[in-house]
Design a protein around this nucleic acid. Structure first.
Length: 385
DNA sequence: GAGGCGTGGCG
DNA sequence: TCGCCAAGCCT
């Protein structure tokens, strides 16, 4: 029973929590409303599936209606879509599939090629795990993805969400993936007052209770499409929603307040100095970052360490040269800090050798490098590329 | 379990 | 302009 996982007392809530009273915090308001299932009925999977049959998005990794999706396509797209928009993933998905048409092809590829193909998409641990996962699928399962949620969960880079998504979408098993879309849909349906991330277990249980035995894969994708196109974060189009009737937040008129989230702290700033060495033939001095940590194994322009305070560049330059400060700086925001990078440039003779651990790369070789966006910015700032 | 881990777009 | 956000995972 769905109500088993909802702790708030049952109370009528129509007319309460109206947008007219917006003086308290979302958390306080949501808690004060204290109501559950003020919608007029239980959310029916059939209503959502009927909506999905008419309004489903056509996406490169999706099978035609009524057809089975290729597990490798589902896997590849799900990894790429982690914390990443559909639009950004599109060309990467197409490119990967063209270059590595099966999981066995991907497993056989050198990691460096996978990293350079992934460059620009972000969260590079995903690319390393993607590669490791492909190799594990070949080694453990003979090159076929297991049609079993627990076995999928055991693979590198596949967590609870992705295991459930592949099980449901590729194999039509009764599994309930919960991503940000589904968290939002469910938290509004039931007007979940507890803030994230604490509310995750409850939302997960609610989502599982909603999942039908028939067409669980379409149901999961329908939930995501609903969250992406109707039940959006800012201004949800409730009047177009197939679940308008049973939705508690719609009844209360405060859907945009959900999901409630715990307040987050300020983002710290870091600064550093990058050394852009340019040889007379146009080659730039690059190196590979360490195996672990931020941007692991990716290509970088040499720089001082990035710290809270600007560090003196002396002693960090990769080679002895006449370094000149370029005007301005490169700004880049990572997940957990904002970076300001000043750039020093030096122009060197064509025969200058690369110091140990470094290499000269001409601009026509940049595409073969695993250059993250922040480093592309540095190169562009220095007039290279 | 809280924090590390990218990037680009949008209101 | 800038904080928020997008199909999370790992440690």
């Amino acid at each position: 029973m769905v109500d088993d996982v909802v702790s708030e007392p049952l109370a009528p809530a129509r007319g309460r929590g109206h947008l007219g009273r917006m003086t308290s915090s979302p958390a306080a308001r949501a808690a004060a409303s204290g109501a559950q299932k003020s919608g007029t009925s239980a959310p029916a999977p059939a209503a959502l599936l009927a909506w999905y049959d008419r309004h489903r998005r056509r996406l490169p990794w999706r099978a035609e209606p009524g057809r089975q999706a290729d597990p490798y396509h589902v896997f590849l797209s799900e990894i790429m879509l982690q914390q990443t928009t559909v639009k950004a993933v599109g060309p990467y998905f197409t490119g990967f599939l063209a270059r590595w048409p099966t999981v066995s092809h991907l497993a056989a590829a050198p990691l460096e090629e996978v990293l350079s193909a992934w460059a620009g998409l972000g969260y590079y641990a995903r690319a390393r795990n993607l590669h490791a996962c492909a190799q594990a699928v070949v080694a453990r399962h003979g090159g076929r993805f297991p049609d079993d949620e627990a076995a999928l969960l055991d693979l590198p880079g596949i967590g609870p969400y992705t295991a459930a998504a592949i099980a449901a979408i590729a194999f039509d098993l009764k599994a309930s993936p919960v991503d940000g879309n589904i968290e939002r849909v469910v938290s509004r349906l039931y007007r979940v007052a507890e803030p994230l991330p604490g509310a995750k277990p409850r939302i997960k249980a609610l989502a599982a209770a909603l999942t039908p035995a028939e067409r669980p894969g379409d149901f999961a994708q329908a939930m995501m499409d609903l969250g992406a196109t109707i039940c959006t974060p800012r201004s949800p189009a409730c009047s177009l929603c197939p679940w308008m009737e049973p939705c508690d937040a719609r009844a209360a008129g405060d859907a945009a307040l959900y999901p409630v989230k715990a307040p987050k702290g300020d983002k710290p700033k870091r600064e550093g100095v990058a050394f852009l060495a340019v040889r007379a033939d146009g080659a730039v001095l690059l190196r590979t970052r360490p195996d672990k940590g931020l941007l692991a194994k990716m290509t970088e322009v040499p720089s001082t360490p990035w710290g809270p305070k600007p560090e003196a560049p002396e002693g960090h330059a990769p080679l002895k040269a006449r370094w000149r400060a370029l005007p301005g700086a490169v700004e880049h925001v990572f997940t957990h800090f904002a970076l300001t990078l000043k750039v020093l440039r030096a122009d060197l003779g064509a025969g200058t050798p690369a110091p140990a651990g470094h290499r000269w790369v001409t601009p026509d070789g940049f595409d073969a490098e695993a250059l993250p966006s922040v480093m592309r910015k540095v190169l562009a700032h220095g007039g290279v590329e």
